[in-house]
């Protein structure tokens, strides 16, 4: 491989490539910006006040990397309306005293407040799984981010077509 390539293109094969493409698309950052240090919100800033999906993710990651895998986000592929969409997040974890899921965050690409919900778990949770119902402001990609007890971050993303968006009227 020529040296001129950017490092992340060297490993761009198969699943890895798709994961990276998803990551890059997710952040939608110009390549130049990727090389720059990531700005963290000031301490005490409520992530729920951050109005970009990238900002919401970074407020949780605080510069750490996230990898695709171990997390499964289940959303229907299409919803008639976005008022109440069933959502389930499951993380592959033994949920033991020493190896458990610390938190799960849901980030929306299009909702006015991108950080939709955060769940704080512990080893006492029998299963690293939460289910709820959410609003979605239109067709978009939703990201579920999980932090494990070792500090590592894992994610899954799901695309959903929403015919009638929430937030405009009704519920």
């Amino acid at each position: 491989m020529p040296d001129g390539r950017r490092p992340w293109t060297l490993t761009a094969r198969g699943a890895r490539r798709r994961a990276l493409a998803a990551l890059v698309a997710l952040f939608a950052l110009p390549r130049r910006a990727l090389a720059q240090p990531i700005m963290n919100p000031a301490p005490g800033v409520d992530a729920r006040t951050i109005n970009t999906p990238q900002g919401a993710l970074q407020s949780i990651l605080k510069g750490a990397a996230m990898r695709r895998g171990r997390v499964r986000l289940e959303l229907p592929s299409a919803a008639e309306n976005g008022h109440s969409v069933p959502m389930l997040v499951r993380v592959d974890s033994p949920m033991s005293e020493t190896d458990y899921v610390r938190r799960i965050d849901l980030v929306s690409e299009k909702n006015p407040v991108p950080l939709m919900a955060s769940f704080f778990l512990g080893s006492h949770m029998g299963r690293a799984e939460v289910e709820s119902r959410v609003r979605l402001n239109g067709t978009q990609r939703v990201t579920a981010l999980a932090q494990l007890s070792d500090g590592s971050f894992w994610f899954d993303a799901a695309d959903i077509v929403v015919n009638e968006s929430a937030c405009l009227d009704g519920g």
């Binding site: 969409v85 950080l115 704080f120 949770m125 029998g126 299963r127 939460v130 119902r133």
Partner: peptide, 24 residues
């Protein structure tokens, strides 16, 4: 003991539903 806690915003649907399991 706290089994589960959550921080929500307006993205959670009206009359919120929550489903989970815990041990002990």
């Amino acid at each position: 003991k706290t089994v589960l806690s959550a921080q929500w915003g307006t993205s959670v649907s009206r009359n919120p539903f929550l489903h989970f399991r815990f041990k002990g």
